[in-house]
Design a protein around this nucleic acid. Structure first.
Length: 140
DNA sequence: CGACTGACGGTCG
DNA sequence: ACGACCGCCAGTC
């Protein structure tokens, strides 16, 4: 048997599987972004076990045809929407985010306020910063 | 096969 | 803040 051919097939299949796995992990990760939170492409990639492959996340979002994904919760690393400002998709994303209480100000979303992990920490620790340490001594 | 093109991201001047 | 680069990945011409 033409080993080389078989090998070629095997490799090609392996690559397809790798891609399929990566795609599935990326989709699951995006699905797990809580409503009202946002995450960057890079963050998604990292959490999906694919560090450094933000571009792959963008690619998957573009070609995905499985169950609907909360794609609007995925932003660029600096909080900006990835689509050209003013485009159909851009406006739609702004609308969907707004419906969850995430506002786009100056072309950007406040990641400090809506970042995924940060939100989680906030939910767990919930220590509102508003109150400053007002020098008060401890009364022991 | 090389060049180009995106739902990207980090670094550097 | 901004552009130039470079690394990264899949598709298209």
């Amino acid at each position: 048997m033409t080993k080389s051919v078989d090998r070629g097939k095997t490799e090609a299949k392996g690559e397809r599987d790798d891609y399929a796995r990566a795609e599935a992990r990326i989709a699951r990760t995006i699905l797990s972004i809580p409503e009202g939170s946002v995450a960057s492409y890079g963050e998604i990639a990292t959490r999906a076990g694919l560090p450094g492959r933000a571009r792959l996340v963008g690619h998957v979002l573009g070609v995905w045809e499985g169950e609907p994904l909360p794609w609007h919760r995925v932003l660029r690393a600096d909080g900006r929407i990835a689509f050209p400002a003013g485009s159909r998709s851009f406006r739609k994303q702004v609308r969907l985010l707004a419906a969850e209480g995430v506002l786009v100000v100056n072309r950007k979303v406040d990641l400090a306020a809506h970042g995924w992990d940060r939100n989680l920490d906030q939910a767990l620790w919930a220590p509102p910063p508003a109150v400053k340490p007002r020098k008060r001594v401890a009364k022991r």
